[in-house]
């Protein structure tokens, strides 16, 4: 499976059961429980992570919380 993650082409072993939720775990994405996932240009609701399949050619962005600035 060939997908683009954060602008990088990424080759993953084929897995028809892969979902956004399982991908986050598979890649051990930081802020896994809070990260916003954008799939093909649309921000996904968190509730949809488990039911949304990852398919060949998908473009996925992980958008992380960054809270610093003043301290």
């Amino acid at each position: 499976m060939d997908i683009t993650i954060n602008g990088k082409e990424t080759l993953l072993p084929d897995n028809p059961d892969r979902t956004i939720d399982s991908l986050l775990e598979e890649l051990d994405v930081s802020q896994r429980l809070y990260v916003t996932v954008e799939l093909n240009g649309e921000v996904l609701e968190r509730a949809a992570h488990e039911s949304t399949p990852v398919t060949n050619g998908d473009t996925i962005e992980f958008l992380y919380f960054m809270g610093g600035g003043a301290q």
């Binding site: 429980l33 809070y34 958008l63 809270g67």
Partner: peptide
């Protein structure tokens, strides 16, 4: 539109921590 709600407190490190 990007982050519908804040993360729970202490879930994301601050600059003083990280």
């Amino acid at each position: 539109c990007i982050f519908p709600e804040p993360p729970p407190k202490d879930a994301i490190p601050t600059c003083s921590q990280a």
